[in-house]
């Protein structure tokens, strides 16, 4: 559990920095790197950590931006795509979460290739 927390925290910090300079998919690369460097028992745990971290990051940043804006733009964008504006923050979190999850899982699975001990598999 502790590892889960640390991994998530590192994704949060490095991901924020990377995305400030790089395109949106850089979050997946960060998650993959973190997944690769953290020794996980299985890739599902890594997936969960990556998903949780990026969901949290994307939804809370989007939530922060939209609350400062009184949801003015979110309402318009929701209207434009015919999505309830209330779903936009969770949907943003979910999309980010998938990137983080698959990123972290891919990193972990890459590490597994180089690991000698094959007693525990994903």
């Amino acid at each position: 559990m502790k590892k889960f927390g640390i991994q998530a925290l590192i994704i949060l910090i490095l991901g924020s920095i990377a995305q400030y300079f790089l395109p949106f998919w850089s979050i997946a690369v960060v998650a993959a790197l973190v997944g690769f460097f953290f020794k996980y028992e299985n890739s599902a745990a890594s997936f969960a950590a990556g998903t949780a971290a990026v969901t949290l990051l994307w939804s809370s940043y989007a939530g922060f931006l939209t609350s400062a804006n009184a949801s003015q733009l979110a309402n318009q964008i929701g209207n434009l795509f015919q999505v309830g504006p209330g779903y936009l923050v969770p949907a943003t979190g979910l999309i980010g979460g998938l990137l983080g999850g698959f990123g972290a899982q891919t990193g972990t699975l890459l590490r597994k290739i180089f690991e000698k001990d094959d007693s525990v598999s994903a």
Binding site: P23, F81, T92
Partner: peptide
């Protein structure tokens, strides 16, 4: 519909245009 990734990423997408007085 614009590419979803860059458009919804709070770091690059439409969220960045949600302006406040601050």
């Amino acid at each position: 519909i614009p590419p979803i990734g860059p458009f919804v990423s709070p770091f690059t997408g439409f969220w960045q245009n949600a302006e406040s007085l601050d």
